[in-house]
């Protein structure tokens, strides 16, 4: 047996430094972030199937329940609390306008998935948008309003 039950790592969350913190080896990143007060990252299934915990890790969307906290060594993480740039503010306005969420539990993951769609700068049809968000579960809306909001974001950007 090698290694330890906790690991000392450094990383950033929304630009804030976390230097030399000890994380339990077995803890996934979502639980770690939540324990530090980033409770906007939600857990729906802990097996990658619902998309609620999707965050940004080094510029890419990842399921934070399928990444160990220890794997975040050296990473730049962004959670919903840090989605405050101009593009994401616009996205939020469109989500609000189209009522693209009801209970709000899926929203952090849905916003991250939207962010990645927009960063890819592709003009997508409604069916393609549905394909891109098909890993994010929403029980409330039935998805149409979310597709409406993302479609408007894409039109504004392209």
């Amino acid at each position: 047996m090698a290694g330890n039950n906790s690991v000392n790592i450094s990383f950033t969350v929304n630009g804030e430094n976390f230097n030399n913190v000890n994380v339990p080896s077995r803890q996934h990143l979502a639980d770690y972030l939540r324990s530090q007060g980033f409770t906007g990252t939600h857990l729906g299934c802990e097996q990658g199937a619902c998309g609620a915990c999707t965050i940004e890790m080094d510029g890419k969307a990842v399921r934070s329940c399928l990444v160990l906290a220890s794997q975040a060594n050296g990473a730049n993480l962004k959670t919903v609390e840090g989605f405050d740039d101009e593009m994401m503010e616009k996205v939020k306005q469109n989500f609000l306008k189209h009522n693209a969420f009801q209970c709000g539990f899926c929203s952090p993951g849905m916003l991250m998935t939207t962010k990645e769609i927009l960063l890819n700068k592709k003009k997508l049809t409604r069916d393609e948008i549905r394909s891109e968000i098909s890993g994010n579960y929403c029980r409330c809306t039935g998805y149409q309003s979310i597709v409406d909001a993302i479609e408007e974001c894409i039109n504004e950007i392209n």
């Binding site: 939540r34 980033f38 409770t39 906007g40 990252t41 939600h42 857990l43 959670t79 919903v80 609390e81 989605f83 939020k92 989500f95 609000l96 306008k97 009522n99 969420f101 209970c103 709000g104 539990f105 929203s107 952090p108 916003l111």
Partner: peptide
Amino acid sequence: LPRENAKKHLDGGGQFVDD
């Protein structure tokens, strides 16, 4: 009218039991 009060969910500011 849009649900202005619900914007907190888009900022990660909801208060769910597990929070």
